[in-house]
Amino acid sequence: MAIYNNTRFLIKRIIIADFRTSLRFYSDQIDNPSEEQPVDPTKDRTKIIPLETSMRYLESKAYKQTYGDNPVWTLYRRNHKGGFPPKKTRRSCVRNGVISTGNPCPICRDEYLVLDHRNTKLLEQFISDYTGQILDAYKTGLCQKKHKELLVAIERAWDQGLLTYDVPFRKYDYSLYNKTANN
C-alpha cells in the first residue's frame, strides 16, 4: 500500500513537472543557478603554475613593482575582530580550487608565488635575518596549509644545500684523536 502511494505521488510529481515545463513562457536561466557559474579568474586556483614561471616572476619587473625590496608578507594585514589577532591563522584560503576568503594570505593571493625547495628567493623571505629561524605564521600571516608547505620546502632546501645556514659549532676533544701521542 505504502509503495503504491509513493509511486503514485512520484508519478504525479513528474506529470506536474512535465506540465510546468511545457507551459513555461519565460527564460529558464534564473531557475537553475547551480549549473557552472563562471569562476572569477582572479580567484581561480586550479591552474598549476610551473616552478620556472614562478622563479622568473620573482626576478621580474612586475614583482619588483608589486613588492619592491620587501618580503612578500610585509604589507599584508590580517582581518580580525578585537585588538589582538587570533594565535592561529585560518586553515586554508582555497576551497575547491577557488579562493574562499576576501583576504587571502600572502602566498595564496598571488598565484605566481609557488612554494618549492628550489624557489630559494621566495623561501629566504620567510627566514629571520637575525636568528636564522623560520618566521611564525602569526608574523607572516600565511594560512596553516601554506605554512606547512613552507616548512617542508625550507627543510628540503636546507637538506639539499640550496639554502645555507650557520651550522652549529662542533667542539673536538683532541685527546680522543691524538692516540699516538698518549701511548
Binding site: Y130, T131, G132, Y165, D166, V167
Partner: peptide, 8 residues
C-alpha cells in the same frame, strides 16, 4: 645565527 636564543 645558530645560537638558538629566543631573545637576541
Amino acid at each position: 645565527k645558530n645560537t638558538d636564543l629566543p631573545v637576541l
